[in-house]
Design a binder for these strands. Sequence first.
DNA 1: ACAATAAGTCGAAGCGCTTCGACTCACCCT
DNA 2: AGGGTGAGTCGAAGCGCTTCGACTTATTGT
Lengths: 335, 335
Amino acid sequence: MVTLAEVARHAGVSASTVSYVLSGKRSISSATRLRVERSIQDLGYHPNAGARALASSKSNIIALMMPLRTDMYVPVMMEIAVAVATTARTHGYDVLLLTGAEGAPAVRRVTGSGMADAMILMDVELDDDRLPLLRESGQPAVLIGLPAETVGLTCVDLDFVATGALCAEHLAGLGHRDIAVIGEAPAVYERHTGFAERTLEGLRARARELDLRLLHRPSDGGYDAMAATLARIFDERPRTTGFVVQNESAVEPLLALLRRQGRAVPEDVSVVAVCPDPVAVHASVRLTSVAIPAQEMGRRAVEHVVAKLNGHGTDGIELLAPELTVRASTGPAPA
Amino acid sequence: MVTLAEVARHAGVSASTVSYVLSGKRSISSATRLRVERSIQDLGYHPNAGARALASSKSNIIALMMPLRTDMYVPVMMEIAVAVATTARTHGYDVLLLTGAEGAPAVRRVTGSGMADAMILMDVELDDDRLPLLRESGQPAVLIGLPAETVGLTCVDLDFVATGALCAEHLAGLGHRDIAVIGEAPAVYERHTGFAERTLEGLRARARELDLRLLHRPSDGGYDAMAATLARIFDERPRTTGFVVQNESAVEPLLALLRRQGRAVPEDVSVVAVCPDPVAVHASVRLTSVAIPAQEMGRRAVEHVVAKLNGHGTDGIELLAPELTVRASTGPAPA
DNA sequence: ACAATAAGTCGAAGCGCTTCGACTCACCCT
DNA sequence: AGGGTGAGTCGAAGCGCTTCGACTTATTGT
């Protein structure tokens, strides 16, 4: 293990000089800089992270807290995580991965130990028990998702209200009048994760303006659950011709069931999904969808966090504008 | 920020005593222990991670290197990551998330800086350029996946050869003679990620023994690619009645296409998938499958790493035995 | 009864780095 | 010519923790 002191000796300078070469916080003659850099190369020196953290009280680490439930909106979470990790690297930070399993205590542990300089929380619920701790810790943090009370917090999320509105507009524009919304699993609503409710809100508001009739049904994923849900929908509203689906694991079952019932997509019924683009593209019918910009969300979260760490902090909410891509699953309402 | 010294003063003992209370490395009278623990509570003390790492040259962090490609076998990766993170916590470690983007240099950075005590590499290719560095760094490491050369390495993986054999046996047992294998995307084979090839190997070996005829076709995911692949398969081997699919994003398109062609599953053709259980359960036909035990892999990887860090290290390869679950997608071959 | 041992505690020396103040030289301005 | 300025460098003091050796007091064996 090569130390700074050894590099200094090798280059014939003092330790502080090497440190300044590394950090650039004081001017160094280019002659010494070069000499030091050569020594660093020659010896294969890497600064010790612990020592650095201790001396500077900066860890250069951002903690990312993921939901534990590995069965839900997984691809989105994964994309966010990867985007966070890569973006963080471009700013010189590494990412510590925390799972929701520990919950609030993890926040305390990380902020208390100086293990990370900042936190990013995913899957924030409307009334999240990690937030009070976060607030009092005073540690820079960014949420991905939108809690009920956002004072003093920075949040990044897709504008789900606008997303709902967009779906309603698209279907209305094609002449559909009866719309069924296949929502997330009931558990998601019970946890009040917010985004599902916000989509619905946007959907309802615009539906009212556009004079659509809306039926909302949460649904667990899977074929059997979907079959039951679908039966109830057509029972209540036989003239339903438009579907909005916000549940990745309901998409394929829905398509399969519609096919089996002899309803052609998009000739008889139209389907709009709210899901990541890859899911929409790989589905058995290429889906018209509003993308969940997972990468963008991860990237923006890191950028906010880094800005805070550099003092250009700005609290507030950034809602990303939704984009609807028309593919093969929506068409004019049947006459 | 409360320090050890303040705790010591508050409890009326020396700093070293507090340290020993924390680490349990020397015996402490229960009276002092209690006093110190109360002080820790009262002051809300959390040891500083950097200082600890510096003094003990242990970071209590395990680095996990994930593949960058967020579009492939995502749920598996995610499950592994979460399992690694939670298991690591039970052993007192945190997890640093690295993406493959940085490649080998990341290995150097992390081992060099003492940022992590050990590494876990996912998505290891047969001839992985991170391995030489890993070997020379001498840092404890575990691979998830199986490279070509495993001397001096510890690896955890599903036994894909046995997996292939298991699929062949199951279909043969049901009377199928002509089997088509829908493999991963060609890119996967080109990268020599190994597991795809090993599955095929197991499949071929057992097929020979059981006198099955096997046709292997890699396939990109998605409906259109699958349509082309499937057409070619029935063109070459019209009597194909068994399918083995090892590509999550090919599963639904395959099922959809078979339905559209009027081939009933499992009456006319049987389908066995190699995929995580949730995928098999949520598919539009509940799939007979060999599960990819992602959680188990993550857990075992951490356990090996921790064992190494504790000196009970054992190099070697641990191949998890595959298990085939019969669901609704396989049945007797048609007469 | 006395050395040997164990239990419990403390002081001090670092771990490898950052950073502050101070020092030495040019060099420039008037 | 003399003081001011800025560039370039060094020394030393920590950052908060672990850990080694040493010390004090009980406890044990013979």
